[in-house]
Structures are given as C-alpha cells and as structure tokens.
Amino acid sequence: MEHVVETFGLTKRYGSETAVDHLDLAVEAGEIFGFLGPNGAGKTTTLLMLLGLSEPSEGRALVLGLDPLRSPLAVKSKTGYLAENMGVYRDMTARESLRYIAELNRLDRVELAAAEALELVGLGEAADKLTGAFSRGMRQRLGLAEVLIKQPGLVFLDEPTLGLDPDGIAAMLELIERLPRERGLTVVLSSHLLHLVSRVAHRVAILDHGRLLAQGSVAELAAERGVAPDLEEVYRCCLKRAGEEAAA
C-alpha cells in the first residue's frame, strides 16, 4: 500500500516539554485516518510539522513523498488544512474568501473553482453573503471549501466538528466520508471525539502525551488487545496500559 504520510521518530520539544515524542506514523492513500488523543496529546503539533509550519526538534516526515521542512511550499500546495477554530475574514463574502485562497494558490479558472467548491459544501446560495454573518457550521463548511478549492491530494482536518450542532456534525461527517470516494482524497481526521471518528475512519492512530500508543484498523487493534472491536474500548485500553507503564 502506498503511504502518503510517513513519519520517522518525529519529535517536537518546547523547552523541557516534549509535545510529540518519536512518532512513527504511516497513512495510506485514499483512506480516512483517524488521529486520536485527548486534548494536549500532540495532534495539532504533529499536523503543523507535517505541513511545514513547525520545525521538528528531531526525526523527519514525508508527505506525498516530500519533506515538509525542505519543500514546504510544494507540500502546502498539494495538501489542505482545516485548522481547529479556523477563522474567516468577516468583511469578505464566501466567494471572495475562496477567490483569495485561489489567488494564494495561483489557481486557474478561479470563479468556476470557487462555485464548484461552494456547491460541494452546500454553500452555493450563501456565496455572496458576508462570512461575518455565518453560523459556526457555515464557517466550518466554508473552511472545507477553502481546503477543497485547491484540489489537494491529502487533507488534514483538525477537530472539524468542534462546536457544531448535531445536524452540522452529521453534514460534516457525510461530507468527509464522500471525499475519498468521490475525489480520491486521503483524509487525516484529528479529533478527540471517538464516536464521531469511529463512524468514518478506516484506520486510526492513538496518541497520548506525544507518544503513539497504537496504529491500525479498529478490528486489528481490538484483536491485539483482546477487547471488543469498538474504538472506545480500544482507546480506553490503550490509555490504561500507557498509564500503567508510566506508573511502573
């Protein structure tokens, strides 16, 4: 299987604090990869290193075959990133926001691409409304449109359902599920909401205190640990064992 993301002992330290500790990840092409862990586990820091936005203290990463540290522009032009609490330019319309992102990516046929991306996320009718008046769910969908307009091969979604109401969550998950199927995208979905990730992810990685506790499909991980094939069971078992190891 082709790997679109690989990390080799990827580490990030802030002074004496280790945010990410010798991480070895492998994300396969065309999958939805759940990147799980409690708040502060090091998920966002890892994503930032994969995008070339943060320099690793140790180790290295390959994203779509490129080193984000050496070729950050190439990585950023081929990947999309929806940050946690992604903001909007409140005085721009949705279409203007997309136009701006398209210009930054030097895309051709900007208007057409913007219209397509807005339709895809269900914001076609709100295209010319100011984003300042958008609800949280609409902003998240606009964020996703901004990610998709550049037609990336790989997208990193950091807590994309955070703050959404149940309908918004269902719509976002449905959209995420369609991406690999309809657009051939690989999705790295970072979240601490297990029940949501378990609905769409093909494989997962569980992170705690910057360390990788487990990586694989839920069925594989459950079998290895002798628990029921349920993501929450696997997750609890991993964290419990990590806690015991740390105590020992």
Partner: peptide
C-alpha cells in the same frame, strides 16, 4: 486572534 493566520500560512506562501 480571528484564526486566519494558520489558514493563510497553510497556503503555498512563505
């Protein structure tokens, strides 16, 4: 503060 910095820096711009 408005959360647009990471969005812009995630685009191919130095």
């Amino acid at each position: 503060s408005q959360g647009t910095l990471s969005k812009i820096l995630a685009q191919p711009i130095r």
